[in-house]
Amino acid sequence: MNITIQTFGAFRQFGRNIDLELNAGACVSDIRQPLNAALNQYVAKFDIAGLIESSRFATDVEILSEDAILAAGSTITILPPVSGG
């Protein structure tokens, strides 16, 4: 199934959205490996795998638990460590 990752912060340099192909029934924790593979081609000032590992994933209204099941075609937002205020 296809899901779209909406980017913020340091992930913006890879585009506003990143499309991933995941197995049906995949959960939030299953996003990291294919996302890392998709971004492997890029050069960044930061450790891409490390930042993916320290990021969380969210909908428009809540941060998702790692075992939340993803729906096909959904858009999920990646939240790297935050620095507001």
Binding site: A10, V28, T77, L79
Partner: peptide, 23 residues
């Protein structure tokens, strides 16, 4: 969910390290 990109006098820019969120 807010992120800041600092712009430096030397022309470089960098995202702040920030605080890791819990699920």
């Amino acid at each position: 969910p807010v992120w800041k990109l600092e712009h430096y006098a030397d022309g470089d820019s960098e995202w702040s390290k920030g605080c890791e969120l819990c699920s």
